[in-house]
Design a protein around this nucleic acid. Structure first.
Length: 457
DNA sequence: GCAGGGGAAAGCTGTCTGAG
DNA sequence: CTCAGACAGCTTTCCCCTGC
């Protein structure tokens, strides 16, 4: 509404609006009974005041297009609430919904709580500055309550050492686009204020950017050095086994942490870790999630052959101990977590493991880029350096190889299972990190496995 | 030890594009 | 017309930190 001044006063009762100085039409002191009528009026008003077209093409209708029939946009906070609710309904991961909520929180700081349809490009420019400099926790910490976008950005400049990384801004950009696009699809707004905003280009030279990090043989030996590893791990099954499994499968930490006893399978005499999502019997009839396991995507689903060094280290003995103790999960002491508000599972078994492993690594003097994920990077890097083809590595790691060729991908992934297994086994046999794994003794975790009071579903 | 927020990166999928 | 590759859009993961 470039050449129109608009003031909307929100009182307890009806909405009051003044629209003056329009090109052709002006209104003063119009009263609306609710926000929906205000928005309908606003759309109509914009159409009436639109510049006349310079020229019509032959195909264009002579009469004005009908007004869109969508539900008019409501206030930002209501639209955000509904948007997040929609995400939940469409079965997105609880964590994803939370992240979207965090990014969208900044929007509520635009002139209080305006109508979603009133957000314009200039607002986004302001918002960008806020997101770039927002002080930590400023949308949740009560100390910042009531502050405007400008004030917050100003405080951030004083408090923060540097602005948010470009990658983070890319995420905010993505989420804002997604939010306004969904309003556009619902015909609640006619165009997205994000349309003119290009995605920020990632800065390759950023000195704060984390470097890809893999582990050298030396470093692997330090991690599994019996003098430090054994005392740290000997009372916790997940500390003992998860790093070893991570090392020899390259699986994501979440995939390792969530495995069930039934996910370790023997097929035609060969043992596999089945990375998959199965129903938890206690959740089967619930209205919410029916599994505490998650998969990043379709191509994550796979069977990974269990490497010989793991078997030599007594993994199958541990498996039998679990079965003897009637355990259903590979690491019964890890919890999936539970959302306090909804009571739903957080489906996040990895947290405890990640924190404990990171603490161990820190104590060994590893820098902060050395984490569990480094096992995955290491496996991929080593196999790649040995000339193993990407698609064969992907069969182990569960990466998607869509860009190769869908036909070929389909063929390699399960169409001919024996061929898939053959390729996996050949690839895995080329991975020989020079570590000596500690050997499990039968009954080593008897105490932990029998004390069910500390087990989680 | 866990819930939950935050920063950053990884990675999946739909769509466009341009060469053959 | 086909299809690999690039790109854009979107979702999920990893891991840190804080506060209880």
């Amino acid at each position: 509404m470039s050449d129109t001044t608009k003031t909307a006063t929100r009182t307890q009762g009806p909405l009051l609006i003044e629209l003056v100085e329009g090109r052709n039409v002006s209104f003063k002191n119009v009263t609306f009974s609710d926000e929906a009528s205000f928005t309908r009026f606003e759309i109509l008003f914009r159409r009436l005041n639109r510049k006349p077209r310079q020229r019509r093409t032959a195909h264009e209708a002579r009469t004005a297009a009908p007004l869109p029939l969508g539900t008019p946009a409501r206030s930002i906070s209501i639209e955000i609430k509904d948007f997040l609710e929609d995400m939940r309904r469409s079965n997105l991961a609880p964590r994803s919904v939370a992240i979207y909520g965090q990014s969208l929180a900044a929007l509520k700081h635009l002139h209080g709580d305006t109508l979603a349809s009133a957000v314009e490009r200039d607002h986004i420019r302001q918002l960008w500055d806020l997101m770039l400099w927002a002080p930590k926790n400023c949308f949740t910490d009560p100390r910042y309550a009531g502050k405007s976008a400008e004030e917050l950005a100003h405080l951030g400049r004083l408090e923060r050492a540097r602005p948010a990384a470009t990658a983070t801004m890319v995420k905010h950009h993505t989420i804002l686009c997604r939010f306004f696009n969904s309003l556009k699809k619902a015909h609640a707004i006619s165009m997205s204020p994000m349309d003119g905003f290009k995605k920020p280009k990632l800065e390759l030279a950023n000195e704060h950017r984390k470097r890809p990090r893999w582990l050298t043989n030396d470093e692997l030996q330090r991690i599994f050095n019996p003098e430090t590893f054994t005392p740290w791990a000997k009372h916790h099954p997940h500390r003992w086994w998860a790093p070893m499994i991570g090392l020899y499968t390259g699986a994501r930490v979440g995939e390792v942490a969530q495995m069930k006893v039934s996910d370790v399978e023997c097929i035609n005499g060969r043992w596999f870790f089945a990375i998959r999502k199965t129903v938890d019997s206690d959740l089967a009839n619930s209205s919410g999630a029916i599994s505490r396991q998650t998969l990043k995507g379709k191509s994550s689903e796979r069977n990974i052959p269990i490497a010989q060094p793991l078997i030599d280290a007594g993994f199958l003995v541990y498996l039998q101990d679990l079965k003897d103790a009637n355990c259903t999960r590979l690491f019964p002491h890890l919890t999936a977590g539970r959302n306090k508000k909804t009571g739903q599972t957080n489906a996040l078994y990895s947290q405890g493991l990640v924190q404990q492993f990171r603490k161990y690594m820190k104590a060994l003097g590893f820098d902060r880029d050395c984490r569990f994920h480094a096992f995955r990077r290491t496996l991929v890097s080593v196999l790649s350096a040995k000339g193993v083809r990407d698609r064969n590595i992907a069969l182990l790691t569960g990466h998607a190889m869509r860009d190769q060729s869908q036909v070929i991908d389909h063929h390699y992934r399960g169409e001919v299972p024996e061929e898939t297994i053959r390729r996996q086994v050949i690839a895995l046999s080329k991975y020989r990190p020079s570590v000596v794994l500690p050997v499990y003794k039968k009954g080593q975790f008897d105490e932990q496995l029998k004390d069910k009071s500390r087990h989680h579903p």
